[in-house]
Design a protein around this nucleic acid. Structure first.
Lengths: 319, 319
DNA sequence: ATAAAATATGAAATGCATTTCATAGCAATA
DNA sequence: TATTGCTATGAAATGCATTTCATATTTTAT
């Protein structure tokens, strides 16, 4: 394999000059530059990026942590990040964690190993202090609201959004409201739970723990929800569904089960995915690609910043 | 930042010994080993993987090329690859190409730059000779049928599968069969087109170019299909839909439009996604996670191999 | 008892490119 | 004219860890 030394010899210059040509250093005579370029061409030379990274201390690689990539939520986010990465000539290292802490730590460790310049957490399971340990080793960016201003993040205020949705349903007359969520833990989920609890307290409504439907991520997860709703002798009259996929599934299920929407069951989805538009589901538009873009930009910037993204309510026909 | 030299000094041994301890070389006295480990612990030392990679020539990084990650097809494939990568202590570098050749070449270049050990193409746009150029620089694995045995691949025989589906529809009495596909180009699409053309030739059926519906990937892409079907004065009586997402969308559309399935329009989907089961769509099960797993294994193995994956027909209610 | 094999350790070479330092000619400025 | 700034180039140091040699001490085998 040909290296910079070979090029130098071939072009009759020093390795310094070769390096300078390769890195567009301005003060090089045209002859030497041409000679180097010719040698590169002839030998089909390519820098060894491990050597470059060792020397310069950075890799143009950004880590992305997400539990799985086959859900539209993460798919879209990843898409947004990837598109922006391309623009800035960075590559992405993917860490699929299945929500396992050990995998998240592995990703963090790669900051320390200098294999990545920064790390984006699309979602996390590990505790905050673990993340903090790795602050010295590179930029860490999250997709959740951060109390202290210690790291950059781009986030949707889920408390606010959830409360807005709940109030809307309340105004429409609903008193038995439930919600479907991907997982109970995680900052974003806890924020929504807090909103839900504050809401029922505010309006003096009874708390039904069975109005909270867990593990709702996909289209088919709706089956379990509708089965539970059918079995209940006091079912909710409205559901907040944190994924449009599941909301669409619920609509489909209800058609089969002759549960009419919104009369028997009102629905508010989240994400404003194309399927929600197609099925006329009232939802919140959340610009995931935009979030992906922002989060990437934060990852490559030196300054720490917090960006709040607003979810916009889209009224359609399921309430 | 503390390096191996610092550890050596601290532990009172040579850097060689430190390296050996770190790499589990067998012949080290217990005292020295303990001293090194203690120094590592104390200083929170972590190897610089760029230096390791520079020296050893490999990175434990595998590149994955795919057009986009927000479609279940690629999401599932990626998931399968990622799960297997974890088992083998490898990480994935993601190349999202949007089917652009330039991006694919960038991915290939990273083999040459020694940033990745191998490259998996989930889908490609670039021509074969371009790929061939990079054979010397690392293992390349594809998800398509390979003529010559020059690279490893895991693939579904789409010609065979498509022909099987067409024959099935023919036996059921269908003579006006169309199909929905993601893109017209690409080996897999061309294989299906070949099957389609051979099929109509075999049965002496007329070729309607408008029976081929392009750009069908997502649920909502079904709208265009159904609109075209409605407008046609000689619409197909059956459709092969290469993505269950789109097939599910078609089912949903048809419900609204009161086109009854399978009477007015028969449907065979592909992928056997959960949504197909839920909506009772006749489809082909294609084990994408399994393909992902295989393809990863091929990427880290030295030998070249070709693995054919069989798509299994699942009869449900849309034919 | 002696040769061969196993255990244990370190100095120095190596992988490859960037960057600092040093040097020198030439043009612009004071 | 003297001084500063720009252009141009290369030797050597540097980033960090692995691996090859070289060497020495113990064991084991013959």
């Amino acid at each position: 394999m040909v290296n910079i030394k070979d090029i130098a010899k071939l072009a009759g210059v020093s390795v310094t000059t070769v390096s300078r040509v390769l890195n567009n250093y301005p003060y090089i005579s045209d002859e030497k530059k041409a000679a180097v370029l010719k040698a590169v061409q002839m030998t089909d030379y390519q820098q060894n990026m491990n050597a470059v990274s060792l020397r310069t201390g950075h890799t143009s690689l950004i880590g992305v942590v997400l539990p799985f990539s086959h859900h539209p939520y993460f798919g879209l986010l990843l898409n947004g990040i990837a598109n922006e990465a391309i623009k800035h000539n960075h590559k992405l290292l993917l860490f699929q964690t299945n929500y396992e802490v050990e995998k998240e730590i592995e990703a963090l460790r790669m900051l320390k190993e200098k294999r990545i310049d920064a790390l984006i957490f699309c979602s996390r399971t590990c505790d905050w202090p673990i993340i903090q340990e790795y602050f010295p080793y590179g930029k860490i960016v999250l997709c959740e609201k951060i109390r202290d201003g210690s790291v950059s993040s781009t986030f949707v205020d889920h408390y606010k959004t959830f409360m807005g949705a709940l109030d809307y349903l309340y105004d429409k007359g609903h008193r038995k409201i439930g919600y479907c969520i991907g997982r109970r833990s995680g900052t974003n989920s806890l924020d929504r739970e807090a909103a839900y609890k504050d809401f029922i307290t505010k309006h003096n409504l009874p708390f039904h723990s069975d109005y909270i439907y867990d593990h709702c991520l996909t289209f088919e997860d709706s089956i379990k929800v509708i089965n539970k709703v059918k079995e209940s002798n006091n079912p909710p009259s409205a559901l907040l569904v944190t994924s449009d996929q599941t909301a669409a599934g619920i609509v489909t299920c209800c058609q089969k089960e002759t549960i009419s929407i919104p009369e028997d069951l009102a629905l508010i989805g989240f994400d404003n995915q194309p399927i929600a538009k197609m099925m006329n589901i009232t939802t919140f538009d959340i610009p995931y690609k935009e979030i992906g873009k922002k989060v990437f930009l934060q990852a490559i910037k030196d300054e720490i910043s917090q960006e709040e993204i607003t979810a916009t309510f889209i009224e359609r026909n399921t309430v």
